[in-house]
Each structure stands twice: as structure tokens, then as C-alpha cells.
Simulated assay, not measured.
Amino acid sequence: MTADFAQPTSKAADSGHRFDPTRRWAAHLKLGLAHREENGQGVTRLVTRQHQGPLRVQRPFYPEGRDGCCHVYLLHPPGGLVSGDALHIEAELAPHAHALLTTPAANKLYKADSHGVHWSQTTALKVAPGATLEWLPQDTIAFDGSRGQQSTEIALQGDARCLGWEVLVLGRQAGDLPFVQGQLDQRFALTRDDRPLWHERQLMEPQHPRFKGHWGQGSASVQATLWCVGLSAPDQAINTLREALPASPRWAVSHRQGVLLLRYLGHDRNEAWSLCLQAWCCLRPLWLGLPAQIPRIWLT
């Protein structure tokens, strides 16, 4: 006669704190922002805040006045992603809300472990009719040997507006440690009323011909994309950018399907960041009728 015995379970395995090829450390942050009428004026409030794992937000800030844009800082205390990390960020803006979401420092994508386990980061942003979202994270630095997937989805409804950017640095420029191996899969989807405005996927593998070819990455170690949806006069915005930004073959701007896109491809992180910052300062008055207000977390 034989008996079947249940296998003991590991608390480490149940929690995801394991160190084999199947490990997964998850973190989740869900935010909801809504427009409220208080004391005879409108204000955007952070009304929903749910988190699991090392993802947090500080209290909302109102550097543009209590009835102005709500600034929210997304915090990831570890400071970067390692093998097995799975970060999921959600934010939803209710009708007529206005929020600027940013981060206090660069997001670092560290080298994969000896098992080559990938990390993942998913961002899902929903913007209701009449709402305005500014998605302005600081740059992302992919260390040599990093392996993972970044996915960003922005769903606009009705006349919702959005401006955002992504600045990506491949390798560690300060330490002269280039990105010579690894794999970075970036996916981006921007929709309005469930219809695609801009879909893109790029797979960065240093060993692939597209990484060095002039028809692809061209061996560039820094790239940046800024997008803006909701401009009333896109041609004027493009002319303003071309007049205000330093002339260079490393960037270009276009407008299609209601989306203004500014692209940078080069080797200088500071140049890319400065370009996006200047473009935002030029576009915000045309886009919202408001001057750009630098988040104070960038100055610390």
C-alpha cells in the first residue's frame, strides 16, 4: 500500500522571491485622477492609489496653483529593473482632469543574471474626454547585457490630449561601457476611441544588422521620441520647433494622424534630454495655453 504525500510549499516560491530561471518579482501601481469643483474652482485630485510591491507615489504637488495641473512623482525605490522584475503601472484620468506624471531619477535596466531571465515593464494610461495627460519620465538607461520588454499603451477617448516622451540610453556612457550584448524589446501603442494613431515596435539586439545599419539604429547609443496629440495648429507647432531648437541632422519632426512626433538619434544623453525639454517648453503654450512648469524633483 502506498500513500501520496503533498509536496511542501516554499514561502519564497509563493512570494516570487526565488533565484532560478522561473523567478518573478512583481510590482503594481494603479492611480486614478479626477476633476473636482472646490471653492468655486476646478482642481485635479488623486482619488485612487493602489500598490503592490516597490512602486509608490508621493503626495500630489500643485506648483502651477491649486487649480492647475496635478504633478505626481512615480517612485520605484530599487532604482532599476533586474532579472525577474515585472513592473505594471496604470493611470486613469477622468473627464477634464489634468496631470503630469514623472519620475525622480533615471530608470536603470540592469544586466541579466546567469540564467538570462528577462524583466518586464508595462505602462497603461487611459485619458477620458476633456482630460490632459503629460507623461514625462526621466531617461531610461539599458546596461550592457540587459534583457527585457517595455510596453507603453496610451488610450485616448474623445477629445483627450496627451504629450509625452521616452529618452533611451544604451550602455553606460560615463563608464565607457557600451551596449554590446542583450536584448531590449520596446512596444508603443497610442489609440483614440480604440482606433490606432501610432503603433510601433523596435527590437534592439546589438548583434542584429539593423542595430548597426544606417537603415536602422545606425549604431546610435541614444534615442528619444516626443509625441503630442491635441494641437490645434500643428503646422505652427512644427515651425516653432524648427526655429527654436538647435539645427542638427540628429533630430526631425513630423505630424501624421493627429500626432506630432519629434525624433532624436545620436550619442549624447544630455543633448537628447535638452531637446525634449526645449520642445515641451515650446509646445505647451501652443498646446494648452500654459507655460511649461519644470517639476521640482528634476532639480534635486
Rank of each mutant, 00 (worst) to 15 (best):
P206L: 08
H208Y: 03
H208R: 15
P209Y: 09
R210E: 05
G213D: 11
G213C: 13
A220Q: 10
V222S: 09
V222P: 03
V222D: 03
Q223I: 01
A224R: 00
W227K: 09
W227T: 11
C228V: 10
C228S: 05
C228L: 13
G230D: 02
L231E: 03
L231Q: 03
S232C: 10
A233V: 05
A233D: 14
D235Y: 05
D235C: 13
Q236Y: 04
Q236N: 11
A237R: 04
A237T: 14
I238Y: 05
R242T: 02
R242D: 07
E243Y: 11
A244I: 08
L245N: 01
L245G: 08
A247I: 05
S248G: 15
R250C: 13
R250P: 04
W251M: 01
A252Q: 12
V253H: 03
S254T: 14
S254D: 03
S254M: 08
R256N: 09
Q257A: 15
Q257C: 01
Q257P: 04
G258C: 06
L260T: 05
L260N: 00
L261T: 11
L262Y: 01
R263L: 01
Y264P: 00
L265P: 02
G266V: 00
G266D: 00
G266P: 00
D268A: 14
D268P: 05
D268M: 07
R269N: 06
R269L: 04
N270K: 10
W273K: 09
L275I: 04
C276T: 14
L277I: 12
A279M: 09
W280F: 14
W280C: 05
W280T: 03
C281I: 12
L283V: 00
L286H: 08
W287C: 02
W287H: 04
W287I: 02
W287A: 00
L288Q: 14
G289C: 13
G289P: 07
L290V: 15
L290F: 05
L290C: 09
P291I: 13
Q293Y: 09
Q293V: 08
Q293G: 01
Q293S: 09
